[in-house]
């Protein structure tokens, strides 16, 4: 389990960066492994975990990458719908180009950091925005390959 100040920092990041209301995460526990923080639905039954050897629990939520917080692809897919800012609305062919070339030009005034990738309202994950106008692909390799084959 995470210390409450670390929990606040992580949930505060989702709220400040993407506008996902902090209360969205009230029903969940945050549990840390070495590099990844997992989101686990809270339930008295979880007490049981203490007596079991588990492989993993819940959904990977956020990682520390080079000192920065990086939301995971799957958490962004699941909770990105609640976001109100730092959203890059792309066409499927732009998304595919991002996956193929690793970087595309995106003329937006986002502050540097992660932005959510959407096509037609569907949320794919996030990538890194750097000023000026650079969007760097940060989707996992398998998903990149799949997206390239879709276009």
């Amino acid at each position: 389990m995470l210390r409450s100040d670390t929990r606040e920092e992580i949930i505060g990041y989702w709220e400040e960066r993407f506008g996902v209301p902090a209360r969205t995460f009230d029903p969940y526990l945050l549990m840390a492994s070495s590099r990844t923080v997992y989101l686990v639905r809270e339930n008295p039954g979880l007490e049981l975990l203490k007596t079991m050897r588990i492989q993993n629990a819940g959904l990977p939520f956020i990682r520390k990458v080079a000192g920065y917080l990086k939301p995971t692809t799957f958490a962004v897919q699941r909770f990105g719908a609640w976001a109100g800012k730092c959203i890059a609305n792309l066409s499927i062919s732009d998304l595919s180009r991002l996956c193929r070339d690793g970087e595309i030009k995106l003329e937006k005034d986002f502050s540097p950091g992660y932005v959510i990738l959407r096509t037609d309202g569907d949320t794919w994950g996030c990538s890194l925005f750097l000023s000026p106008d650079r969007l760097l692909c940060r989707l996992p390799k398998n998903l990149r390959k799949a997206i390239m084959q879709m276009a």
């Binding site: 686990v40 050897r53 959904l59």
Partner: peptide, 21 residues
Amino acid sequence: IKRLGITNTVVTLNSRTILPA
């Protein structure tokens, strides 16, 4: 589990030893 975005599932390996009493 990740692809479907599920948060309520705990994964364990093997049957006898690790299941709870």
